[in-house]
Nucleic acid binder design. Structure first.
Lengths: 169, 169
DNA sequence: AAGAGATACCTCGAACACGAGGTATGGGTC
DNA sequence: GACCCATACCTCGTGTTCGAGGTATCTCTT
């Protein structure tokens, strides 16, 4: 829906755009995409205009309907918790948060993410004791994992704080 | 399988440990975990020892069988492409790569990831032209997304290079 | 002129995941 | 003594996702 809100597209191109989000979003399989398009069309979330001729096969240009736009905004404004806590989902949310044309609502979403990120957390535990990188002297891989996660987290927290200040202005 | 290779656990604890990987791995639902355990038990990948009495409900302590260990090693040694390219999967792979007790094989896996990360790539395209952060003057969210992704990527590439040098020694 | 490969859509069965529901017991509180 | 919560396991229906297969056309190479 985000990509369609950017511009009307045909299915194949949509699939390519999602695939380009490599590393953060899994590519969508054919068998997932086309049935989903049908479902969304039936639900009135998008319109399909067949554009015969020009290319190999007739393209079905998909346009987000007003109902689809509303649904996108609803999901951007009040995303499920998974969209805040899961890397992949948060990534897609961020990619299209611009469409939520309301600084206060955007700020509220960013604040939810900031709250989540600043919660004390650890990936591994020994009973109730959170384990840190130093607790894995024999596992350079987990130490690396901590290093990468910390760097990401720090960068994101700094960015979120900046954004929240500039959105408040 | 990785957590069970660390130590035998009961299902509930397993679920908690996966849930602790917050932000990188989605929590597993009850309805997913227990049928999966059954399937793996039937497949001979793990053994179940019922430990009655001590706690509220009898715990089923799960132990990875030799076949399960072999399967884990197989998957660590030759992971599907998704485990290299998808953040979530790569994260879990890294968390248990120590179990693959062979520096050469570990190095090969890290090299696959490094190759993937150093490929020129972009999340968004205008036709064939890759779009960079500067191409989104009106979208601070996508600029942030680039900033975070770049920081993560840089940190990880640096770590991978270090690891590969130290593994080669 | 043939064939490979990209474009573009589609279907179907099998596998998988989830949420809602259920059972049962131990520990703590009011 | 009643109640709630955490622990610990389980099932089932519904919905999702995938992969393998299929169709057809256009373009580029050999």
């Amino acid at each position: 829906m985000g990509f369609l809100a950017d511009a009307p597209l045909h299915g194949y191109e949509l699939r390519r755009r999602v695939a380009a989000l490599t590393g953060h979003v899994r590519p969508i399989a054919d068998g997932t995409l086309y049935p989903t398009i049908k479902r969304m069309e039936r639900a009135g979330l998008l319109r399909r205009d067949v554009q015969a001729g020009q290319m190999a096969a007739p393209r079905h240009v998909l346009t987000l309907s007003p109902a689809g736009q509303a649904e996108l905004l609803r999901q951007l404004r009040a995303p499920d918790e998974l969209f805040i806590t899961d890397e992949n989902r948060w990534f897609t949310l961020l990619a299209f948060l611009r469409h939520l044309d309301d600084p206060a609502a955007q700020g509220a979403v960013l604040r939810r993410r900031l709250t989540f990120l600043t919660q004390p957390a650890s990936f591994f535990w020994d009973g109730d004791r959170p384990l840190r990188a130093n607790d894995f002297p024999d596992d350079p891989f987990r130490r690396g994992l901590f290093r990468i996660a910390t760097a990401t987290s720090r960068t994101e927290i700094a960015w979120l704080r900046e954004m929240l200040t500039s959105l408040a202005r």
